[in-house]
Each structure stands twice: as structure tokens, then as C-alpha cells.
Design a binder for these strands. Structure first.
Length: 408
DNA sequence: TCACATGATTTCTT
DNA sequence: AAGAAATCATGTGA
């Protein structure tokens, strides 16, 4: 480690002090602490004279006063400050400080670099904007979240309640955020003004450039903006929690509408030999039922497994849908010019092309009661009561795609 | 409150 | 990756 230089010394090569030549009082300033050194360097200066002693005492006093100014009461300090301002040595001190500043100023200038905008802050800002917390009052994330949530399960009657609850909570967060932000901004500007006033006042006794004031303002703003970042962070967290809760609430199981279940059941029972809707059919069903494709898939998955597990239980339901579809088909037969306009499944039938009309083997459920026994004819050739011949793709090997699936 | 229905999720199989 | 099967969690009606 380097040996620290004695604070009071000029240093081995710094006999010139801090470039104080030309200022009559400066030699004395140095000599306050090191009179013996100065006396021996042959510089006549002011030493040894009455005047010199007096000046030395003056400067010493001034420095002493400056050093102890923080220990004094405000009134006392104010008085001292006034005295200092009026002191005859003040201009000298001021110009010394100017010179020192000139020398040290270079390093300060290098610190003026504009900091790039904090990416985290940018992210937070973007998020708050997207969530509708920052920026314009309406629309934005609230609507987006609501639509995202509702798209996965259709709009149930009470969803509007939850929706408004979400919105009110979000606007609560929003108002708190804006209040706090305003408070911070106000505090920031108050503090900035205060500091600027202080610096302006100080500029009477020490050199304070406008640029320096500007720099100080920048520092204050950065400090306050870090507080604002924290506020933004907390707000984002609150929004995330609210949103998660809202979406969780939406995720709660909700029975599909009667009409949706009917559409799905009609498809299921009219394709009983191969109840595996294609992607296209799923899409169409989803559209008709106001649910998502994955919900259609879930429904068919559940239906297949539950049907298979307890065919007897579903027999009645199967018959009802078979009759229904048969009725629709009969009506279609009666009015051949509007063949696809009657039932919910007509579109699907048309779409898939091979889906059958009345008399389809799928619909031939017969009147005989199954008593819970496995109805082989319902399940077509898969007499083990399972469609799980998944070695053939359900879609590709659609039983009626070749018109041969009439055996049930 | 309970049993059952039902939509969703998870794990495993093909 | 799609589907089967098991399971979970909630809705619903008695």
C-alpha cells in the first residue's frame, strides 16, 4: 500500500501548493499549518510581519469557522455566513476555490455521460402501459386480460360480474399508482428546487456553475426515479397477482351451456362408430359451442371414456340424439332444396362429407334395451366396446370415409 | 350435506 | 402429438 501523505503537507514535489501563486493570501493559508516549512524555504512572503500574522489568523479563523459550521445552530450559522460573505478575504478565497475547481473540473466533466435508459424500467413501463395502469384510462390490458380469460370458456352470465370486479380492482391499483407517482414527482421537484436554491446561494461563496447545478439535479432525479422504479415494480406485481386471481377464477370449471352440450352430443352420437372429430370438425364445433378447440378435445376425451365405461347409462341419451338427428334428416329429405339448414350438425356433416344422414349406422341404435350390456351394434365392428384401435388414426381411418361403415 | 355430473389436468401409452 | 385412463375440483340437484 502507498503511504498516505500527511494531510497538512504540500507533498514532496508540490511546493507550489495548489497553484495558489498570485493570490496574496495563499502563502499565508499554507503557513497556517506549516509555518516552519515556509519559513525555511526562503520565501519572504508575509511571515514575520505584523500584517502577515494578522492575515494568517484571519484565514485560520475563516477555515475554522467553515469547518465548524455544521455544528452550529441555524441562526448562528447564518450570522457566520453573513460575516464570511462580508469578510475582506472572501474574494481571495473565492478565486482560490475557482482555481481548484478549474483543476478538478476536468474529472467531473467526464462524469457527465448520459446514462442509457434502464432496460428494467423500460420493461416495467411497457407492462404498465399494456395492463392499462399507465397511459390512457380505458382499454388496454384490462380488456386484453378479460378477453383472454373469457376466450377459454365462453361468456357465462356471471362473467360480467367478475369482469367488473377485475376492472374496479385494476382501476384501484391505477389510482394508487398515479397518486404515489404524483407524490414522488412533487417531492422530487420540491427537493430539486430546494437544492438548486441552496446551490445558487452557495455560489456566492464558492464557484458553482450552472452545469454543476444541472448535474446535481440529474443525480436527484436518478435517485427519485429509482424510487419510482420500485413503485412501478410493486404495481406490476399487484397487477400480476390480480390478473392471476382473475384468470384462476375463470379457470374454475363451468358447465358448458345446454346448447353447446347438445351440439357436442349430436356430433358424438352421430359419429358413434368413430367419435374422433377432425381438426376441422373440432374447430367448427368450437365455433358453434363458443368454446375452445382444446375444450372440444377435452369433452370428446371425457365423453369417449365415460361412454365406454358405462354404455348402459348413456343408452337413453344415445337414443334421444339418434331420434333427434333422424328427425332433422327426415326434414331435410322433405325439403331437398335446403338440405343443410336445419340442425346444428348439418354443417359438420356437410363439411366432413362422409358424415351420414338418416339411416347411418351410427344412428342405428335400435329400440332394444341394453340393460347396461355392451351394445355391439353401437360400437360397430369393435365388439370389445372400445374405439381404441388407435393403431389407425381415427381421422384417417374414418369408418365411413370408404362408405363401408354400416355394420353396427 | 351428499352423491353424482362434468370440465380440466396429469400421467401414461401408442 | 393424440388419445386413454386416472384423478382432481367444482357445479348441481335432491
Amino acid at each position: 500500500m502507498l503511504q498516505q501523505q500527511p494531510l497538512t503537507g504540500n507533498g514532496p514535489s508540490n511546493g507550489r501548493g495548489l497553484g495558489m501563486s498570485g493570490h496574496p493570501g495563499m502563502h499565508s493559508l499554507n503557513s497556517v499549518h506549516q509555518p516552519s516549512q515556509h519559513r525555511s524555504d526562503g520565501d519572504p512572503g508575509l511571515e514575520g510581519t505584523e500584517n502577515g500574522h494578522e492575515s494568517r489568523r484571519d484565514i485560520g479563523d475563516i477555515l475554522q469557522q467553515i469547518m465548524t459550521i455544521t455544528d452550529q445552530s441555524l441562526d448562528e450559522a447564518q450570522a457566520k455566513k453573513h460575516a464570511l460573505n462580508c469578510h475582506r478575504m472572501k474574494p481571495a478565497l473565492f478565486s482560490v476555490l475557482c482555481e481548484i475547481k478549474e483543476k478538478t473540473g476536468l474529472s467531473m466533466r467526464n462524469n457527465q455521460e448520459e446514462e442509457p435508459q434502464d432496460p428494467q424500467l423500460v420493461r416495467l413501463d411497457n407492462m404498465l402501459l399494456a395492463e392499462g395502469v399507465a397511459g390512457p384510462e380505458k382499454g388496454g390490458g384490462a380488456a386484453a386480460a378479460v378477453s383472454a380469460a373469457t376466450s377459454s370458456g365462453g361468456m357465462s352470465p356471471d362473467s360480467s360480474l367478475e369482469h367488473s370486479d377485475y376492472k374496479s380492482k385494476l382501476s384501484q391499483i391505477r389510482s394508487i399508482y398515479h397518486t404515489e407517482l404524483e407524490k414522488y414527482e412533487q417531492a422530487c421537484s420540491e427537493f430539486t428546487t430546494h437544492v438548486m436554491n441552496l446551490l445558487r446561494e452557495q455560489s456566492r461563496t464558492r464557484p458553482v456553475s450552472p452545469r454543476e447545478i444541472e448535474r446535481m439535479v440529474g443525480i436527484i432525479h436518478r435517485k427519485f426515479s429509482s424510487i419510482q422504479t420500485q413503485l412501478k415494480q410493486s404495481t406490476c406485481e399487484a397487477v400480476m397477482i390480480l390478473r392471476a386471481r382473475f384468470l384462476d377464477a375463470r379457470r374454475k370449471r363451468r358447465n358448458f351451456s345446454k346448447q353447446a352440450t347438445e351440439v357436442l352430443n349430436e356430433y358424438f352420437y352421430s359419429h358413434l362408430s368413430n367419435p374422433y372429430p377432425s381438426e376441422e370438425a373440432k374447430e367448427e364445433l368450437a365455433k358453434q359451442c363458443g368454446i375452445t378447440i382444446s375444450q372440444v378435445s377435452n369433452w370428446f376425451g371425457n365423453k369417449r371414456i365415460r361412454y365406454k365405461k358405462n354404455i348402459g347409462k348413456f343408452q337413453e341419451e344415445a337414443n334421444i340424439y339418434a331420434m333427434k338427428t333422424a328427425l332433422v334428416a327426415t326434414q331435410n329429405d322433405d325439403s331437398p332444396h335446403t338440405p343443410n339448414s336445419t340442425g346444428p350438425t348439418s354443417n359438420l356433416n356437410q363439411r366432413s362429407g362422409s358424415f351420414s344422414l338418416p339411416g347411418s349406422a351410427d344412428l342405428f341404435l335400435g329400440g332394444s334395451q341394453m340393460n347396461g350390456e355392451q351394445p355391439g351394434y353401437i360400437l360397430g365392428g369393435q365388439t370389445n366396446g372400445s374405439w381404441t384401435g388407435r393403431n389407425t388414426s381415427p381421422h384417417a381411418a374414418s369408418p365411413r370415409s370408404d362408405g363401408s361403415d354400416h355394420s353396427e
